[in-house]
Design a protein around this nucleic acid. Structure first.
Lengths: 352, 352
DNA sequence: CTGAAAGCGCTTACAG
DNA sequence: CTGAAAGCGCTTACAG
């Protein structure tokens, strides 16, 4: 009577199937070396028992450490944007380290394709990783790299920007078109008299996928809402402050009655600096990203709205997706769009 | 030579301290029955080794299941607001269940104090919980309940609203004053001519802590920014649709030139319904919460801005805080303010 | 105050 | 194709 203890998972299955637990283990993990007949018998019992393996015990016994690779741009002097995803990734790492995850970081320079190729190569040379989190900033090179992942069936997750890839586990990033669309709305709020909007792109690659999607959404807003306006587009490919100022100077000479400015990325603070230096206090300024500089100009009123896409959470989510898929075997969303956050002077203190 | 295997955590500590692992375990968990001298010896070694217990092994061996109780309002027909926190809590539960957490739910009706008292009593009657997550919607009753928690040293976390409580582990919710402050800014955007703003409170307890904080922040915005305006306050304590309409009817009769309306909670959709029925299309409407009804009125333009505080994340965060504190012994923020999100027609599809 | 031993639910060689 | 046994790093009675 006393021996009437319930056996736990594998033991109970083994007892019912009249086999050893080693055999049960083989079936659970779909390893070879089990006769079809015992296999199906065991599978039936597993189903009947609605058996869920104890992940704690499994991880403890196996001692396996899953190795993840992270391939993202390094934070530059110019902008600390990529510090945020990195922070999120580290937070996720912290959280799951105790469950046997190790993370290796590989960085590249956004101004240097070769550095991407190099880092990607390092990942390949390393002994096999169990998953990769990357920002596919260079399209062609990224495709090449994920080709390798697909062949080796290594799951990979994109953050911040997306490219076509059939083997992809998940994309985590902003819905760009809608983001531009909202940007236009936030600009419209500042339109009073002239309807002149300056659309500024300060970037070496102003025609990238990201920017053109934003522009598309931006224009679509005015089209859909049938708003009278005059759009002046300004591309500044030399991203030095001096050049930005010069370009703005010129535009304002031509269009002294501009009353709204939209900047497609985090360099909006340059424009704020310019406005401040010129004391153009009445101009409504909208831009991107919650960087240090931008926060300051938001606080003192030179920037009116910042649009943000939770860069830290992108990193966190990205790593956790890999963990959920690889370790916990949980389902993962193929596309996870970040929200489009509006940050103002009034709510900036509580933004993360 | 072959025996030169490194011992793992407790074993290694035991070897170095020349005691048994049972004694090491006693010290690690601060259990009694260890002489001061061995205790300090072991503690020293633990420190030197920078020992981190293997949580996997610990949970597996102990077999202890931590039991958490959740005490929140149930989603009503009127509003599905509380479905979101519940969803977040369930997501957290899913994630940590495998680590030996069980969660019991106790609901109450926001229109019925007794249902709160009943559910609180059920928690007390149950065999001891290891932690409680609750929404202290009824102040007096909540104080009584947490009194019990404090006495039994059961950690508890508040979500959504806060009350004074010394034993509290964490408060997770909105910064109310700032939220009202931002609300005023969003109203100011809609002010054109008359500067008449209607401030509406539709609630049985219009003078609760939450609402008065929001009002304070709201008024402070106009004060700080020295904005000319005329505030008309309307309290509607009968929350039936008919009553709301009647009240609005009256106000609009007195003030036909109202151009902005601010509603302090999720019942803003009633006001939207009213405006729609009257075809008052030019009125700028700002309110709270991302409920189904509100989303619809935001989409079709009757509501201009919704302020939200990530209800789902509040639930998720709330349960995870308990987990972090109780199981992982990690430090937990005493106050975790949610961001103040601005949701518009343009970004609502990506809000969570 | 302290220790030897069994056990948590799995996995992993190894032997057959 | 299958099983017996050791072990993962802890915790838990139990005995002294």
């Amino acid at each position: 009577m006393k021996k009437n203890k319930k056996l736990s998972g594998v033991k109970e299955i083994a007892r019912l199937a009249d086999v050893s637990i080693a055999t049960v283990d083989r079936v659970i993990h779909n390893r070879s070396g089990v006769s079809a007949i015992t296999k199906s018998k065991i599978e039936k019992i597993i189903k009947e028992l609605n058996y869920q393996p104890n992940i704690l015990a499994s991880r403890l016994a196996s001692g396996k450490v899953y190795r993840l690779a992270v391939l993202i741009p390094k934070g530059s002097e110019r902008t600390d944007f990529w510090d945020a995803p990195l922070k999120g990734i580290k937070r996720a790492e912290e959280e799951i380290r105790q469950y046997g995850i190790s993370v290796d970081f590989f960085f590249f320079d956004l101004n240097n394709k070769d550095s991407f190729i190099d880092s990607a190569q390092k990942i390949k040379n390393n002994k096999r990783f169990d998953g990769v989190l990357l920002a596919p900033s260079f399209v062609k090179e990224s495709i090449q790299f994920i080709h390798y992942c697909e062949q080796d069936t290594i799951p990979f997750v994109f953050i911040d920007s997306n490219i076509e890839a059939k083997g992809i586990l998940s994309y985590i990033g902003p819905p760009l078109f809608q983001s531009g669309f909202l940007g236009a709305r936030l600009c419209a709020i500042g339109m009073r008299h002239t309807q002149k909007i300056l659309f500024v792109n300060i970037s070496k690659e102003s025609n990238s996928f990201n920017y053109s999607k934003i522009e598309e959404g931006f224009k679509n807003y005015f089209f859909e809402n049938d708003v009278d306006h005059q759009l002046i587009k300004l591309d500044i490919t030399d991203t030095e402050k001096k050049s930005v100022f010069l370009n703005l100077e010129k535009i304002f000479f031509q269009h002294p009655d501009i009353e709204v400015i939209f900047v497609t990325n985090s360099r909006v603070f340059y424009v704020a600096q310019f406005l401040e230096s010129k004391k153009y206090a009445k101009i409504h300024l909208v831009g991107y990203d919650f960087s240090k500089e931008n926060q300051n100009y938001l606080k003192n009123g030179w920037i009116d709205f910042l649009i943000c896409h939770k860069p830290e959470e992108q990193g966190y989510k990205g790593l956790m997706s890999l963990y959920h898929h690889i370790v916990l075997k949980l389902p993962v969303d193929q596309i996870y769009f970040m929200p489009i956050d509006i940050v103002t002077r009034e709510n900036q203190d509580f933004y993360r």
